[in-house]
C-alpha cells in the first residue's frame, strides 16, 4: 500500500485575472520507504505540491492520502507528527531571532516531548552539527549549517515521511555531498519515506527510486530511475531535460 498518494490535485492562487493554476491534475503515489523525486521547469508547481500536502496552500482540490487516511481541510496534530517538510531556501526558513536551541526546543515541546535537552543534543548529533552550534543564531551559521538545522527540526517529530524542497540547491557541492549522505543514512536508520524536489537530475538520480517530471503545473511523465539513467524518457519535455543535463 502506498504511504502517500496524490490524485487529481489542483492548486490555485488568487482569483480573477490574477488566478494562477499552479498545479493541474497531478497524480502520483509513493510506497513506504521509497524515495520519490519531483523534477521539472522552474515555476512548474513542484514546491506548491509539497505545500499543498502540508496544508500550506489555501485553495486546492483533489485527493491526498497519507498512510491510508484521506486528508481534508485542517490538518490534525497527529498529521504533523507523521509528515514534515524541509524548505527550499535555508536563508528564509529559520527565525532570525531564535537560536538553534530555541528552534529545536520549541518544536520538541509542541510535539509533546518532555526530555527536550537530551533530544536537542541528539538531533544535533544526528545531523552532524554537534553541541557547539546549539546556542548559535542563524546569522552565525553558513547555508549548509542552516539547512542541517532545518533538517533537524523536521526530524524532531520523528516523522515517517519527509518532504524535501530542493534541500541542496543553495549549497555548494561538498556540503551537498554531506547532506545527501546524511539524508541517505537517516532514511535507512529511521525507515523514512522521501518526496524530494530538485532541479538537478543527477541529485534525483542519486537519491530517488522513481521520479515525476513536471511542466507548467502538470506531471508529464513518471519514470523509474533506471529509465532516467538509461536516458529513456517518453515525453518530449523529459527528453529535452535529459539531453540538456548531460
Amino acid at each position: 500500500m502506498s504511504m502517500i498518494s496524490v490524485e487529481n490535485l489542483d492548486v490555485w492562487f488568487g482569483r480573477g485575472r490574477d488566478r494562477v493554476d499552479a498545479v493541474k491534475g497531478a497524480s502520483f503515489a509513493v510506497k513506504r520507504g521509497e524515495s520519490f523525486g519531483l523534477v521539472g521547469e522552474s515555476g512548474s508547481g513542484k514546491s506548491t505540491i509539497l505545500r499543498a500536502i502540508m496544508g500550506l496552500a489555501p485553495d486546492w482540490s483533489g485527493q491526498i492520502t497519507v498512510d491510508g487516511k484521506a486528508i481534508s481541510g485542517r490538518r490534525e496534530k497527529g498529521f504533523y507528527k507523521q509528515v514534515q517538510m524541509v524548505f527550499q531556501d535555508p536563508y528564509a526558513s529559520l527565525h532570525p531571532r531564535h537560536s538553534v536551541d530555541q528552534v529545536l526546543g520549541e518544536t520538541l515541546l509542541l510535539h509533546g516531548f518532555t526530555d527536550i535537552d537530551d533530544r536537542v543534543v541528539k538531533l544535533l548529533d544526528d545531523v552532524g552539527l554537534g553541541g557547539k552550534f546549539r546556542f548559535r543564531y542563524p546569522h552565525q551559521l553558513s547555508g549548509g549549517q542552516r539547512q542541517r538545522v532545518a533538517i533537524a527540526r523536521a526530524l524532531a517529530a520523528e516523522p515517517e515521511i519527509l518532504l524535501l524542497d530542493e534541500p541542496t540547491s543553495a549549497l555548494d557541492v561538498s556540503v551537498q555531498a554531506e547532506i545527501l549522505n546524511l539524508l541517505a543514512d537517516l532514511r535507512v536508520e529511521h525507515g523514512l519515506t522521501y518526496v524530494m524536489v530538485s532541479h538537478d537530475l543527477s541529485v534525483v538520480g542519486h537519491m530517488c527510486d522513481q521520479l515525476a517530471v513536471m511542466k507548467d503545473g502538470e506531471i508529464v511523465e513518471i519514470m523509474a530511475v533506471d529509465a532516467l539513467r538509461a536516458m529513456k524518457a517518453v515525453h518530449p519535455y523529459s527528453q529535452h531535460l535529459l539531453e540538456a543535463s548531460v
Binding site: 502540508m54 496534530k77 514534515q84 524548505f87 528564509a92 529559520l94 532570525p96 531571532r97 531564535h98 510535539h111
Partner: peptide
Amino acid sequence: SSDYISAIQLQGAGPMRIITKHIWPL
C-alpha cells in the same frame, strides 16, 4: 508569508503562539 512561519505552523503551533513568540520579537 515567510518560510520560518510556515515551518512553525507545520509543528502544530497555534496563532497565539506564533503571534506572541514569533512575530512580536521581530
